[in-house]
Computed example of a mutant assay.
Amino acid sequence: MATKHENDGGTVLERQESKLKPPPMYQVLLLNDDYTPMEFVVAVIQQYFNKDRETATQIMLKVHRDGKGMCGVYPKDIASTKVELVLTHARKAGHPLQCVMEEA
């Protein structure tokens, strides 16, 4: 067991703190399909990711053009919850919209 000496300036504590990393963050992505209406995608982005209509439309167009679009970056548990909420909402509305998360 190491003992702290008065003259070591707290380096033991500093070394321990430097090992702590912030938790990984996850991006939540919507994936393009040929069936989900664009207006539905815009509404989902506004409702679940708190975006204004213009920003939601820009994200939807990115999904449409590039095959996927990022809706936000969150800690793992929040990202996972958002994915589940979006998938559940889309299925209830009869749309095959896919929502996934990946480490940022």
Rank of each mutant, 00 (worst) to 15 (best):
T81P: 00
D8Q: 13
K92Y: 13
V12Y: 12
Y26C: 01
G9S: 06
P23Y: 09
E6C: 07
V28K: 02
Q98K: 14
L31Y: 05
C99Q: 06
H95T: 03
A90G: 06
Y26P: 00
M25C: 02
P75T: 02
A79C: 06
R53L: 11
T57C: 00
P75F: 03
E39C: 01
V86Y: 04
I45Y: 03
K82L: 14
P22A: 14
D77H: 14
G94Q: 11
V63I: 15
T11W: 13
N7D: 14
Q58V: 09
L87M: 15
K51F: 03
L13M: 13
T57S: 11
K51G: 06
P22H: 06
R15F: 13
L13F: 14
D34R: 09
L13R: 11
N7M: 14
V83G: 02
R15H: 12
T88A: 15
V63K: 01
E102I: 04
Q46M: 15
C99H: 05
T88S: 13
Q46D: 02
A79L: 04
T11N: 12
Y48M: 02
E102F: 00
E14H: 08
D33E: 12
Y26H: 07
D52C: 09
A90D: 05
Q27G: 11
P37A: 12
H5G: 02
L87V: 13
G67M: 09
V86A: 02
M38G: 11
P24M: 03
T36A: 06
R15D: 12
K92T: 12
M60N: 10
F49S: 08
T3N: 03
A56K: 06
N50E: 15
T11P: 00
K21L: 14
P37F: 10
V41A: 04
E54F: 12
S80K: 11
P22V: 11
D34V: 01
L31R: 07
D33Y: 05
T88W: 06
L97C: 09
Y48A: 07
T81S: 10
R65Q: 13
L31K: 09
N7R: 10
V63M: 03
E17G: 00
K21A: 07
M70V: 12
P24G: 03
M25I: 08
M70F: 00
P23N: 08
L87D: 06
S18I: 12
Q98G: 01
E17D: 14
T3E: 12
A93I: 06
H5W: 03
D8G: 01
M1E: 05
P96E: 03
L61A: 01
T55W: 08
L97A: 05
G72A: 08
S18N: 14
T81M: 10
E84R: 15
R65I: 05
E84W: 04
G9I: 03
G72T: 09
H5P: 00
V41T: 15
E102T: 09
P22Q: 14
G9K: 09
E6A: 09
L13W: 09
K51C: 11
M1H: 07
A93W: 07
E103P: 00
L13A: 15
V86N: 03
Q98C: 05
T3W: 09
G94L: 07
K51T: 10
R15C: 04
E39W: 07
E84P: 00
H95Y: 15
T57D: 07
T36Y: 04
Y48E: 14
T57K: 04
V83P: 02
